[in-house]
Design a protein around this nucleic acid. Structure first.
Lengths: 199, 199, 199, 199
DNA sequence: TATGAATGAGCGTTCATTCAT
DNA sequence: TATGAATGAACGCTCATTCAT
């Protein structure tokens, strides 16, 4: 895990059934998608779907878990690469968030959108994962403030602003558009640096 | 309209049925909410609901239209108050967005969340309203850049970042929390100023 | 309740929907009957069925409760009529059981057949009602033995034999057959008297 | 066949798959048991089940046929042992029925419970077997009445009472209880003798 | 023999909506 | 205005069964 290439999004690790489900859930939402629609999208019969997953809910849970886990592992790898330099920590963290939301647009969109559709246990797990992500950024902001590198009054408020900003990418990014994930990530890193008073 | 007090959120103009509907849609989503649930939440019988609205869809449409219209009128009023000062234009615009997303938390949340649940015609209308909002901010950013007041490379990208940042408020703001809408708005104005290179 | 006419089976107190359900459940069993079949038998659409009952299970529960309650109230009335004469107590009790299983053939059949199809709570209630019935007879047998009127070694074993004997009526009785409920009941009373050593 | 030891229930002739099926059918009924449940109970995969039996229905049919055949052969052997003594004929017949319903509790329970779950052809066969059993007892009762040994008015009614009485054993008998099959059978023989006016 | 993977049909239930009153 | 009663269509899911391997 330590040697993970967190900037590499070439192979999509999702099994094909889940990839179809992601597309369909993004288009119509969890409650707006029927199991028949999911099955058709995956080229399966309805019972075929249930052979692979115990329930509709199990499908969205698998998606959420994979999404949160993927982002978390990339974030840790980025953090490790940054070493002790807090400015670099912030830069790589935002770069990681932005790349993830651009490259894994649909997955990231679901992860932030369908939290409320989960049943209690899975919801608690996903919320914990989301909070874990948030605290990673808050810690960076606080460290930078402590060291005098950042001008940050309320770290948790700013963290939320930064995170929603990046989340937004998954709402409008299109591979057909003029911007590449890399250039977007660079821009967002600069945004973040301005927000903490650098630059 | 020109003399509207865009900072005043005292009276909630929503009729009680719609207010109940907003709460329920926020909790479970449009497709996750049944008409029975809506009727029960509003203290009505099912046919009673249909006396007031032609369909479930008509309810979410009314909500979306009211939300977009309220924000739009406040935005115009803020813009008028700012006059020709582009820094003030940006400040009041962001203040207006932030106040709206804090004071009209649930309404704003629905407006950004349930776009995909609308039928084509209503969806087109809401998307147009969303874009209109976005262009208002883009124009401000471009004007500031033209005048040399702002350091903005890609105005539309930054506008989206600013807007999603503010949208985020509606996801985590709570009246029970330590922050008032006013102080949040002030903070977000400062964020915006930093993002355009002021401060 | 004390003045109930326990020999009178003229009016069937079941609402029409339940009467249809009884017939269908008798023919195919609870698990062998679909809600669509029930609805069709009752001349309703499927949601129409669910307007009156919360679930398929609620229907069988209503039937079981009505059956057990009806038999119990008749049994108490018969017991009251018998006064302190233990021979009469036995006679009227068996007469009551036999009349019930002949006149309420299908209802009685379900009550003894579908116990295992009930969910735990309802099952416990029905089992308690069945046991209550059984203990009423056991007490009569024990009283008769104590007073030297009956020659009974194992009262609870004999009670079960008597009860299953009567239960059997609901399996073969037909109003088209040559025997009337009244004559059957008389015969079964004589069976019971022989079994306790009278006659 | 004539030298069969009809009192011996030591070895259960059922193949293991059928024995598991009997247990499951008794617990949940034929329609309440899925083929998946059957396969799991037998430690087989679903296609493994279908290797041994052509269908779910074929399983219950095999069970019913074995049950009816076993009881029939024992009844004939008991009858042969009794010779021409009609009192002994009745005694051994009832002993045979009681022993069977206690020793083959579950099998006997299914035979009387799941008749309605069979498809027409198999159902007709099982009903014929049941009637054949019944006529054997009716004939004994009539013979006893003709010879003046029994005081029986309606032989077929009494036969049904006796048979359901014995059938009841399979509903409440437990090997963990205080009574042995043998003592139960003795008691039921005495019941029968009383019912025909002996003793 | 044995099983992973699949399916058409049907399950119990709920959906948004309507209508007679 | 208001509602008890109803419905066609669809929901999530499971049924008994099959087939390629």
């Amino acid at each position: 895990m330590g040697e993970m290439d967190w900037r590499n999004f070439e192979q999509d690790s999702l099994p094909p059934l889940l990839r179809c489900a992601v597309k369909t859930f993004v288009a119509h939402g969890y409650h707006g998608t029927s199991t028949r629609t999911l099955a058709r999208a995956a080229g399966l019969s309805l019972p075929g779907l249930y052979y692979h997953f115990a329930s509709k809910h199990a499908i969205i849970v698998a998606i959420m878990d994979l999404a949160m886990d993927d982002l978390w592992r990339r974030s840790l790898a980025a953090h490790a690469e940054a070493g002790d330099d807090v400015v670099l920590q912030l830069g790589l963290h935002i770069q990681c968030l932005a790349l993830f939301h651009a490259h894994r647009r649909e997955l990231a969109f679901l992860a932030s959108t369908e939290l409320r559709s989960l049943e209690p246990e899975a919801q608690a797990r996903s919320i914990a994962a989301r909070d874990r992500q948030e605290y990673l950024l808050i810690d960076i902001l606080r460290l930078g403030a402590t060291r005098g590198a950042f001008d940050v009054a309320d770290a948790s408020q700013l963290a939320r602003a930064l995170i929603t900003m990046c989340t937004g990418i998954s709402q409008w990014f299109s591979t057909a558009g003029p911007l590449s994930p890399g250039s977007i990530a660079n821009d967002y890193v600069r945004y973040a640096q301005r927000l903490v008073g650098l630059v």
